[in-house]
Nucleic acid binder design. Structure first.
Length: 782
DNA sequence: GTTCTAGAAC
DNA sequence: GTTCTAGAAC
């Protein structure tokens, strides 16, 4: 072990004796300045490794070229999926730079840090001397860069989410660490904690790791009661090493399954979550999401439920999850029971329950402090089923409390609402929190259903449960913080050692405390499920993505709400609220309404539309067909009555493509609309697919034409014919997606590189563009 | 929509 | 140090 190579090294490296179901993968985040030897460390470990490793290096992640952080995350996730362990080989000197990689942690995936904290002088001299460095950082300027970076250095801390941190401060430390990791067999597990840190002053905060059950509590008394306030945890590295390699810890890691099934075997196994009295177990009761009104396939749903439950239970002790349904004959309950038994899930931690979720305590004699609601996207009472029942029993106070937390909820996400104590659900049923969840809709009788797209549906349903459980955990975490604060204050005021606080705080009080510890929680927000593999939905749930309030942007509200009676609601809503447009967004509106004043730019004019060149073309050919109908500003305003206008505009666009193709037969075109237009007045983009233009300058430009932010005119016409309204996903995070070539789908770190690539890429455009006449070219379907 | 610019990343 | 992004202002 670095710093003290002999201590605990043998016990440090332990096999799991085949007890675990599968090998645990590792994410090892290297932390160090350029020249600290990160790549060499990876190479040395991988040369002698006893498990499969993948090195993810930002300098080469994009097909051998420098890539982006999100590409690194994608690449790391892919390696983990394959059961490989991953080195994150980038500087990672600041906490923020590490955070996204720490989020790769999940069941069967631990995240470690290896800090190559070598003398700055050494790093600099190595950086200056080297040649052919992947990151092109070498020679004279290296010294300055390394110095600057080291000034910002933030050494990693367990509270960031690492289960193990190894500090290396000299070559022999590095050698030891290389040995430790290279000897790690496929199912071996390294013990948790901080190793090799010389600085005794360094604070070690273990609260979060305890919460995540990733490390043992370093100190507990013989009675097994948690008597050590966080502030009293040993800061001395040696004592941490001793505690994490105790017999109890060995058992814990050797056979997690056995220990999960028995709280009594190892006192330290008891989680410190929430209620410190052991007679109450935090319990979340939840209905099956999406399988009633939204008609999600029961078998698939049962698989997802059990998988998500199983994942979650591996992380937490002293909690219970209960799936509730009204009828004994419930198919979903029996499917879940069957699958759960097959997966050997501890039935004391997860079980099904027949009864009314609003009367579990009084009628069912089942104490559940948190219940989930299968909510609608508007978070409104009414409708039917569980949602109506919960709002009815909880009374108006739940509506008010909900309004304080969120406006709307998108499928796949959830929001926690602390239940005021005056709610009957709180006083009678002892429920302190309701978590509203929205799942995917598979019911064709409802607008915007997923049309049997079970790939997307399963993804959304998984997200819904992950979000629900993570939010349940967040309640416990907040309560745990509250308890631990109280605990500390109790000890300091009375000096009675070992006192445990058994009172459960009033939820109003707790809500206030929560608001203090998490200011965003009570912020009124829309809650959107984020898309993109790099984001961990289960971690950030109450994320306000910066969308404008509903009354300022009808379009935004409309299509983000893609469920149930969203369309009707928006029609009503659209009548009373209109999006406001900035002065700069009025240009097309002005031209469309007064084309005679703009003869210099108008190339064609009819009663229905005008055609003009886009003032800032994003390709060789880029024209706009602008509707002249007043009040029709964007796709979200389009209804069946506009169908013929849309068709007329499409024909006009096609006419112009034919003219362009006569000039240059190699061009290919798409005709479509931006889901959220920047300029007022409905306008159709006719754009050649070369994207060869100096005006294409940023990510937003690219993604607005190369993600589902761009909707093909033909598809929209079809949708409006069928449903009377366009099915649009206006998630503006689409505009921030990684940059991918529209031909070969390769990812690129920035716009200049993407542009160099697309200038050369000879791959065909995706086959999907050949469907439904989305692509217009000189030789049809070519 | 663009332009400007601070600051992130290396 | 340079390159590039992303947010503010218009």
């Amino acid at each position: 072990m670095p710093g003290d190579p002999t201590i605990h090294h043998t016990s440090d490296l332990r096999g799991s004796d085949g007890a675990s179901e599968g090998a645990s993968s590792l994410v090892v985040i290297l932390v160090g300045a350029p020249g600290s030897g990160k790549s060499t460390f990876c190479d040395d470990v991988m040369a002698a490794a006893r498990r499969p490793w993948v090195r993810v290096c930002q300098d080469v992640v994009a097909n051998g070229k420098q890539g982006t952080k999100s590409q690194c995350i994608t690449s790391a996730s892919a390696a983990l999926e394959e059961g490989k362990s991953v080195f994150i080989d980038r500087c990672n000197l600041e906490q923020e730079q590490r955070a996204d990689f720490v989020r790769l942690r999940k069941v069967q995936v631990d995240v470690h840090a290896v800090v190559l904290d070598l003398p700055a002088q050494l790093c600099i001299s190595r950086s200056v001397k080297r040649t052919g460095h992947e990151g092109k950082l070498q020679g004279g300027r290296a010294a300055m860069v390394v110095n600057r970076m080291l000034q910002k250095k933030e050494l990693p801390n367990l509270t960031e989410g690492f289960s193990r941190i190894t500090f290396c401060q000299n070559e022999s430390d590095v050698k030891e660490a290389v040995k430790t990791y290279s000897q790690l067999g496929p199912s071996d597990i390294l013990s948790a904690g901080v190793f090799g840190q010389k600085n005794k002053e360094a604070k070690v905060q273990l609260g979060i790791m305890k919460f995540l059950k990733k490390i043992d509590k370093p100190d507990f008394d013989a009675s097994g009661k948690d008597s050590t306030p966080v502030g009293n945890l040993p800061h001395d590295t040696a004592s941490i090493q001793t505690s994490v390699t105790s017999t109890c810890s060995m058992e814990l890691e050797k056979n997690k399954e056995d220990l999960r099934n028995s709280n009594s075997k190892c006192p330290s196994q008891r989680s410190l979550i929430g209620d410190s009295s052991m007679d109450f177990v935090h319990t979340l009761a939840f209905p099956s999401i999406s399988t009633a009104d939204f008609q999600f396939d029961l078998k698939l749903a049962s698989e997802i439920i059990v998988d998500c439950v199983s994942d979650f239970l591996q992380r937490f002790d002293n909690i219970r999850l209960v799936l509730v349904d009204l009828s004994e004959k419930s198919k979903i309950l029996s499917l879940v029971r069957e699958r759960s038994a097959n997966k050997h899930i501890d039935s004391s931690k997860f079980f099904t329950f027949v009864g009314d979720i609003t009367q579990l305590h009084t009628r069912g004699n089942l104490r559940c402090n948190v219940i989930a609601n299968a909510a609608n996207w508007r978070l409104k009472p009414g409708g039917g089923g569980v949602n109506a029942a919960i709002f009815k029993v909880a009374g108006e106070s739940l509506q008010i409390a909900t309004k304080k937390c969120a406006d709307i909820l998108s499928p796949g996400s959830s929001v926690v609402v602390p239940l005021p104590s005056n709610s009957p659900l709180h006083s009678r049923e002892r429920v302190t929190h309701v978590i509203h969840v929205v799942g995917p809709n598979m019911n064709p009788q409802r607008p915007n259903c997923l049309n049997n797209d079970y790939v997307e549906g399963c993804k959304v349903l998984r997200n819904a449960y992950s979000s629900l459980f993570a939010n349940f955990a967040s309640i416990l975490e907040n309560q745990s913080k509250t308890d631990s604060k109280r605990h500390v204050s109790a000890i300091s005021s009375t000096h009675v050692e070992g006192t445990t606080i058994t009172s459960s705080p009033d939820s109003d009080q707790m809500a206030k405390q929560e608001a203090q510890s998490n200011p965003d929680r009570n912020k009124k927000s829309k809650v959107f499920a984020t898309s993109g593999a790099s984001k961990d939905k289960s971690i950030v749930m109450n994320d306000n993505h910066g969308h404008t309030p509903c009354n300022e942007n009808t379009g935004n509200l409309m299509s983000s709400a893609s469920l149930g009676d969203a369309v009707d609601e928006n029609r009503r809503h659209a009548k009373v609220t209109k999006r406001s447009w900035g002065a700069w967004a009025q240009a097309l509106h002005e031209i469309a309404l007064n084309p005679e004043k703009h003869q210099n730019v108008v190339m064609e004019k009819s009663d229905d539309y005008v055609v003009l060149n886009d003032m800032y073309p994003k390709a060789k050919k880029h024209v706009l067909v602008v509707s002249r109908l007043q009040g029709l500003d964007s796709l979200s305003d389009v209804r069946k009555e506009h169908l013929s206008l849309l068709k007329t505009m499409h024909s006009a666009g096609l006419k112009w493509t034919r003219m362009f193709l006569k000039e240059d037969a190699s061009l290919m075109f798409r005709l479509g609309y931006h889901v959220v237009p920047s300029m007022r007045q409905l306008h159709l983009h006719v754009i050649s697919q070369d994207f060869d233009s100096p005006r294409l300058q940023n990510k937003k430009h690219w993604n607005s034409f190369n993600t589902s932010f761009f909707r093909d005119s033909t598809d929209l016409i079809q949708e409006i014919e069928k449903h009377g309204v366009a099915n649009i996903n206006d998630d503006e995070s689409l505009l921030k997606m990684e940059l991918r070539c529209h031909r070969c789908r390769s990812a690129h770190p920035n716009i200049p590189r993407l542009k160099s690539h697309i200038a050369l890429c000879k791959a065909s455009l995706p086959a999907s563009l050949l469907d439904n006449d989305r692509l217009v070219s000189a030789s049809p379907k070519g």
